[in-house]
Design a protein around this nucleic acid. Structure first.
Lengths: 350, 350
DNA sequence: GGTTAGCAGTCATATACGTAGAGTGCTAAT
DNA sequence: ATTAGCACTCTACGTATATGACTGCTAACC
């Protein structure tokens, strides 16, 4: 009991088994009821073999150590962020989703039409419903996308639309302004040349293969590089959402500021990707904004990357009150992320 | 003054000029202050040359006729939906946006990068900021899209991705399951055939041109038809939004139910298109949900179609409290819709 | 020493009540 | 037709009071 099970820096001081039990129960009950947990209530719901006075004493200790708080003198206890953190890292037992639920989710995935955007939308819907939180899914971003086909389309004079289809079916498009007019035939010729040379190559390799490019070809190559460079913005609409309405019903979002902060984060296109730092395969739990996202002090996130590391990854997760069912959330996020990873490797790797 | 200026059926009974003035002032003041307007307050803010008692009498008449209400006995007057409607249809004067503002908006449009999705996002942002409401923009839907290029990409065995680029640069993609395996070469051959025959045609014309198609070719043609049929769903993510957070600050959304209803409508992908009925060129004002959208009883919408009628149209508009600056809203929506229409005809018609 | 019963103390919540102020509706005078 | 004036109504707000939910502490207990 004294050995640390995790390698987290600044390990919290060890709690006695009974303190752990009490902390765990307070967290679980508070997550369910959304009301502060009194010593009496805790006693009535669980048989601990001790009196409420003892529980009070232990709660006082847990408060001293920073795991619990008091809204006011005559109220029950509420977990602090530190309390949730301890719960998530030490007390949560099995976060594996029950088999039945896994089956249900897998079944939905296999029923769906086979399109990435629909899958992402489905993933968001499943996360939202299963965790009762707001869910976010961003499209997988291919690291060095290989070209499948490109098309140059003349629209107005001097204005050309470049459409690129990448391996795996991702499509990107961008307009290009010409210095001097070119007709469609000339454009098609360039496109044909690029298609012949560039098939299955990434943008850099294609550029290397084109000796002595014309100004226009250079411009197209630049645009291709820009589209596939790692700094390039993911298209703004490539984030799929669900469950905002439901999570706004939670009591913590009665206060308008809290609700606004949540909506803000939820709507901001880059938010999820800004927050995710964990590699594919692990689930990241952000509790109470963790100092970095001030507004989200009463929100938690359970998020993960999915896909194939170093090749194509996206992010997904849920956003809800700190009073979140962490067990379910972690289990579901992990399971859905795994499913999505399978999809990515099926569709993008060939 | 007795002649009807509009051809609306069931014309409301004519109000005296003074009643019109008072109704107009109450609406305007309430829109600004969000508090019920008392006879005294109205008198102090505007010189009407009569006493508060007279105004009270007139207000009582307007209430009798259904244009105003009372939250309670000793409160000022608030416009009813009917009052807003009268205001919008008869009392709003010039809804043309001031030249300076037009310039500002036009300027922003010409500064932007030339991509439809970015333009739509920009339109949403402009609407949201200018009207201080939530703004929605849906992508233009081309009626009978002509093919530009299609690509068949083998992903897994039996699973083929169809990517179609239409005239104007719209891209659609869909997966297709094969009955028997085909290799990429065979797929490319079919694609080449379709590209040669189908360039600049719509799906139906292409189908007519292909005599004696193989089973696979039939399947691709079917999919093309489905993608371009009028019943086909617009991709779920093709709606651009902005301004939700801001509009949620409005006092009417203090009540959670109101806020939820708004968020719901705002998030539902098909909402805007479900509501818009007006043709391109006119602005539609929906006040208080108008019976059909029960939840939105305290919301109004100012919306319009844009694009080229019968060819490619989308919808845009704002969603806010019934206490909405209708003049600004109508002016801005009209102006932005016109700009977007110009874009559509520039980009899609050639 | 850990545990517990019991009790004083604290605070939120609910209720009742009184007052101030805002605003209307009505009436009688102009 | 308009208006001054006043009675009436209702909300908002502050205060007082009671209630009940908890805690924290102390002293007794095992």
């Amino acid at each position: 009991m004294t050995a640390n099970r995790s390698a987290v820096p600044a390990t919290p001081p060890e709690l006695t088994p009974r303190q752990q039990t009490i902390l765990g129960l307070v967290v679980k009950m508070y997550i369910n009821t959304a009301t502060p947990i009194s010593s009496k209530a805790l006693l009535e719901a669980n048989d601990l073999g001790v009196s409420s006075a003892t529980i009070r004493n232990e709660m006082a200790v847990l408060e001293e150590l920073g795991y619990l708080t008091h809204p006011h003198t005559s109220a029950g206890r509420v977990p602090t962020d530190k309390g949730y953190r301890y719960f998530v890292e030490r007390l949560i037992g099995d976060v594996e989703l029950p088999q039945a639920e896994q089956n249900m989710i897998r079944h939905q995935f296999h029923q769906a039409k086979l399109e990435m955007s629909q899958w992402m939308q489905l993933a968001a819907a499943i996360l939202a419903r299963s965790v009762r939180s707001a869910a976010l899914v961003t499209a997988p971003k291919v690291e060095q996308p290989r070209l499948r086909h490109l098309e140059l389309i003349s629209t107005q004079s001097q204005l050309v639309l470049l459409v690129v289809v990448f391996q795996g079916g991702t499509v990107r498009q961008r307009y290009l302004t010409l210095h001097e007019p070119m007709d469609q035939a000339a454009l098609s010729q360039v496109a044909a040349k690029f298609n012949a040379l560039g098939h299955d190559l990434d943008a850099a390799s294609l550029r290397a293969k084109i000796s002595d490019p014309t100004d226009f070809e250079k411009a197209v190559l630049d645009l291709l590089m820009e589209l596939t460079s790692s700094g390039s913005e993911v298209p703004i609409n490539e984030v799929y959402r669900d469950g905002l309405t439901e999570v706004l019903q939670e009591p913590e979002f009665n206060k308008r500021d809290e609700a606004s902060a949540l909506v803000n984060a939820f709507e901001q296109p880059t938010f999820l990707n800004d927050v995710v730092t964990s590699p594919v395969g692990t689930v990241q739990v952000v509790i109470g904004g963790e100092g970095r996202w001030r507004e989200l002090s009463s929100c938690s996130m359970v998020i993960a990357r999915y896909g194939v590391e170093g090749f194509a990854t996206g992010a997904l997760g849920v956003l809800g009150p700190t009073r979140m069912p962490y067990g379910r959330a972690i289990g579901t996020v992990r399971y859905v992320a795994d499913l999505m990873s399978d999809l990515v490797s099926d569709l993008y790797v060939d």
